[in-house]
Amino acid sequence: MSKVYVIKIGGNVIDNPVATQKFLSDFASIKESKILVHGGGKIATQVAEKLGVTTQMIDGRRITDEPMLDVVTMVYGGLVNKKVVAQLQALKCNAIGLMGADAGVILAKKRPVGVIDYGFAGDIEQVNATQLLAFINQDLTPIVAPLTVDAQGQILNTNADTMASAIATALAKAGAEVNLVYCFEKKGVLLNPEDNDSVIADINKEKYAQLKADGIVSKGMIPKLDNAFAALNEGVKEVHIIHADNVHAQSGTKLTL
């Protein structure tokens, strides 16, 4: 089976129309099979404010109550997803916009209430790799919004980094040669968060443990790297964390076991 790139684009890039257009132009020019998973950025917060819906964030994670679920469904699954699809069509990339419910590609369950009640947040249970590969085999490029669905048809807000890792893992288990690429506004994993040129070129599991222990890798980068190593453990060939401008060069941080 041919190579498949699973590429996740961060919300901070989605927030910037110029950066988004540059990234999508580069993405469209990738010759190999590809899937794009996108975040939502600050657009949901802006739309929520216009609609009088209060945004609650804890440790950088959105609390998705019923009113906010309506907002993120409209914004992620509608506004953001369809704008990306439309721009890719203009770039001659035959894209199809999806969320978890579409063709049953991603099944999840509502996250149990723990110390924090995240509301309608989804934890992924199953990715339908057969269906995603069927889209690819029809020369379609899936563009996946960070929304899943449970067995009862309840839409759930789901972390896009986790979705990208789960999709990559499912495709690898289905026999594809998968490269997982996380694109965001930094050049890679940084030794010094204040110095965008202090990129750590290679990180294996042992080095990752040391970087965490030393406090160099912290906050939002930890779940991103946890997802990356989970994918490698499940058969994904390569994982890169790079600047959105370098989707071809992949000159940021390469993760290995």
Rank of each mutant, 00 (worst) to 15 (best):
I30L: 14
G77I: 10
E125R: 13
D59T: 02
V84S: 10
I106D: 01
L190M: 13
I96Y: 11
Q152D: 15
D70P: 01
Y208I: 04
G104M: 07
I167T: 09
R62F: 10
M221D: 06
M57P: 06
A145V: 05
G188V: 14
I14K: 07
A129E: 02
K173V: 13
Y76I: 03
A209T: 15
I63T: 03
L69D: 12
A174V: 02
L69G: 07
D245I: 00
A244R: 05
K92S: 09
V72H: 10
V149T: 12
Q154W: 02
G97A: 07
V239Q: 02
T73I: 10
K31A: 12
T64M: 07
A168H: 08
G10S: 09
L88Q: 14
L171V: 09
G10Y: 00
K205T: 12
E177V: 10
D59N: 14
V4E: 09
Q87Y: 07
L171S: 13
V85C: 13
A213N: 14
T20N: 07
M99Y: 12
T162Y: 05
D150T: 06
V84D: 11
A151E: 08
K237L: 09
D117W: 10
V115G: 08
A166S: 15
Q126W: 06
L190V: 09
A168N: 11
A28N: 03
M1N: 11
A230N: 14
P142V: 06
D70G: 08
M1V: 03
T130E: 09
L257E: 06
V13D: 06
D102R: 05
H240E: 05
S198D: 02
M57D: 00
G11E: 00
S218Y: 04
A174D: 10
D226K: 09
A90F: 08
E49V: 12
V80N: 15
R111N: 03
T130I: 13
V72Y: 03
V84R: 03
E238Y: 14
F135R: 00
A145C: 10
H240C: 11
K22P: 00
P142H: 08
I242K: 05
G52M: 09
G122D: 02
M68P: 15
A231R: 11
A90V: 07
V37N: 15
V189H: 03
G60M: 09
K34L: 04
V71W: 13
K254L: 15
K205W: 04
D123A: 08
G52Y: 12
P17N: 12
G114K: 01
N157W: 04
S29M: 12
D195T: 00
N81E: 12
D123W: 05
E206L: 11
P223K: 06
N159P: 07
V72R: 07
F184W: 14
S25H: 11
K3E: 12
V189Y: 02
Q152N: 13
Y76N: 15
S251H: 09
T55Q: 05
A48I: 08
I116L: 02
T158A: 04
E32H: 15
V199R: 04
V6M: 12
T45P: 00
F135D: 01
L191A: 15
K3Y: 01
T141C: 07
